Structures are given as structure tokens and as C-alpha cells.
Computed example of a mutant assay.
Amino acid sequence: MSPRESLSSWRARQNAAETSVVAAVAEVKAERDAEWAEARQAAQQAAAERKTYTRDDLLGADVVRTKLGWYKVVRLNQQSVTVDSGHSWTSVVPFAKILDARSIGGDA
């Protein structure tokens, strides 16, 4: 505030500056929210289009892929697959969590 400027004019200038900053922040938030909503919709659409495996699809599969990686199939259950976890135990993966399934072939 300069010595010649009155307090009320200084406050008016400050209020105008604050209003413009608030408007800019709101605009950035609106853009970010729109991008987030678009990304969320794309992810939901990709999930809806993803193949859901059934027991019949997995009958010949030797390995299955989840979001954590590929696993050897130990047993095929009614609604899930028991896989070798690489440890001393096995893990159960529901069909809905399977991203891909493959048969290695070459039975020995």
C-alpha cells in the first residue's frame, strides 16, 4: 500500500486479486475432475469389455494370469482356480480375477 492509496482502494484491489485466484483454482479443479471422470469411465468400459472366463474356457489351461503375474494351474474348481503360489502353499483365484489363460502344451 503506497502512502497516497486509501485503505478502501487497497482492500478493493486485494479482493479483486483474491477473486481472480479463486476463479483460476476452480477452473483447474474442474479440468482435473473432468479428466479423472473420463479416465474412470474408460477404465470401467475396459473392465466391462474384458473377457470373463468360465470353467469350460479354462479346462485345458496350464497357466493363468492375474494382475500379479502368471501362475501354474494346480486344480480347476467350480468358480475358481487353485494355483501354485511359488511358496509352500497354494492360492485360490476366482474366475473374475483371471486376465488370461494359456496352455503350455507338450505333455511329458
Rank of each mutant, 00 (worst) to 15 (best):
W10E: 14
R32M: 15
V64M: 06
S85N: 08
R11G: 00
T90C: 10
M1L: 13
L58W: 00
A26D: 13
R40L: 10
Q78I: 09
L76V: 10
Q44L: 13
A26K: 06
V83G: 06
V81M: 06
D33E: 14
A96H: 12
V83F: 01
V25H: 03
N15K: 15
T19Y: 01
A42K: 04
A43L: 12
L58A: 03
Q44F: 12
I104T: 05
V73Y: 06
A24R: 03
A61W: 00
R65E: 14
G106W: 10
E5G: 05
V64A: 06
A47S: 15
W36A: 13
D56M: 01
N77W: 07
D33C: 11
A43W: 10
D107N: 10
T90Q: 05
E27T: 07
A61V: 00
T52M: 00
G69R: 01
Q41A: 15
K51A: 02
H87G: 10
M1C: 08
T90R: 06
L7N: 15
R40V: 06
W36V: 11
S8T: 12
V83D: 01
A16V: 00
V25T: 14
V25K: 03
N77D: 07
E27P: 00
W70I: 11
A61M: 02
V28R: 10
S91Q: 15
A37N: 11
L76A: 11
T54S: 00
A26S: 08
V73R: 13
Y71Q: 05
L76Q: 02
T19C: 07
V74S: 10
A12N: 07
A43I: 10
A42D: 07
Q45L: 09
K97Q: 12
V73N: 09
R75A: 12
L7I: 12
A43D: 13
V25G: 06
T66V: 02
E5V: 13
W70Y: 11
V74R: 04
Q41T: 13
I98G: 05
Q45I: 11
S80L: 01
L99F: 09
K72H: 08
A39I: 03
R11W: 04
D56F: 01
P94K: 04
V28K: 04
V64E: 05
